[in-house]
Write a protein that binds this DNA or RNA. Structure first.
Lengths: 151, 151
DNA sequence: CATAAATCTAACGTTTACGTTAAGGTTATT
DNA sequence: AATAACCTTAACGTAAACGTTAGATTTATG
């Protein structure tokens, strides 16, 4: 039976697969933006594919939403919060507390949703402007074409 | 007949109306992001409402699109390019040249449109993720509610 | 097992997008 | 016309987000 090791990745692999520099990857780890990877006996970081996925996501979101890393932290924590919540879901000891926690989480999610929606709107407006500009320009070209014969 | 002066604004007025600091306004002028305002005899900047509009737009777009100021310059130049084109539209001297110029402009617009659309997509994905998370969280709350009686 | 190639931490450097302060000139008000 | 309130340029300061370099391991390879 082959040892089913998920073949750990070195930081350079992660760098190439995520498009982020090694410095940035370590930096994000320091900030707590990504989970700390395992270490070899000698101290070398050993990543799993999961890390690449998270890094890709962070990178995309940062570019798309224009979030600062601090904002990204808040966002990333949402997933963790929900996951953590599930983790100790079975010990239903304090129902009231659990409910409050969930309400809190939903609150933060709604905040983020509003933010994202307002960004969508604004960008949509920008798109409309661009489309209008394009139209103006192409109309200009058509006018040129029409007057082509009569030189 | 009342002298129809469009009542020039001082930098502090522009600052309050645009939400940008005076420093930022001067900074953007240095970068060529906004047209240079007139100056009084003594050298004080005299703005018009138009300036406020442009500044507001820049501010919004910067936040929404996460553009750097350099990218904003490219974008802002599109408007100018189209306007300039119209300016000397009547002297149709070189039809070929005009057509090339317009093609160029449309090309840049299309670039920007692609960029904007890809941003819209990415943000939409983020939104979907948030919605999914919200659902997970609210389902959790319902489970709690259901198990409420049987303590 | 020697040596090259990659990794580690730590620290200082850089760029962007302004903030802040200084020193002096201009406008507005009394 | 004096004085406050605002404006000007110039220069240095700063926070965020990494880049770069150094010096010391560690890991991979012939």
């Amino acid at each position: 039976m082959p040892q089913e090791k998920t073949k750990s990745l070195k930081i350079d692999d992660v760098s190439r697969q995520s498009g982020l520099t090694k410095r940035t990857i370590r930096f994000y780890e320091d900030l707590g933006l990504i989970p700390k990877p395992e270490r070899s006996a000698g101290g070398t970081r050993r990543y799993r594919q999961e890390h690449v996925d998270v890094l890709r996501k962070i990178s995309q979101m940062k570019v798309a939403l224009g979030f600062t890393l601090e904002e990204m932290q808040r966002f990333m924590h949402l997933n963790d919060a929900l996951y953590d919540y599930r983790e100790d879901y079975k010990n239903l000891s304090d129902r009231k507390k659990k409910q409050d926690r969930l309400k809190e989480i939903v609150g933060v999610i709604d905040e983020q949703l509003q933010l994202v929606e307002s960004k969508l709107e604004k960008i949509h407006k920008v798109k409309l402007e661009l489309v209008a500009m394009r139209k103006r320009a192409t109309i200009g070209m058509q006018k040129l074409k029409k007057s082509e014969g009569k030189i």
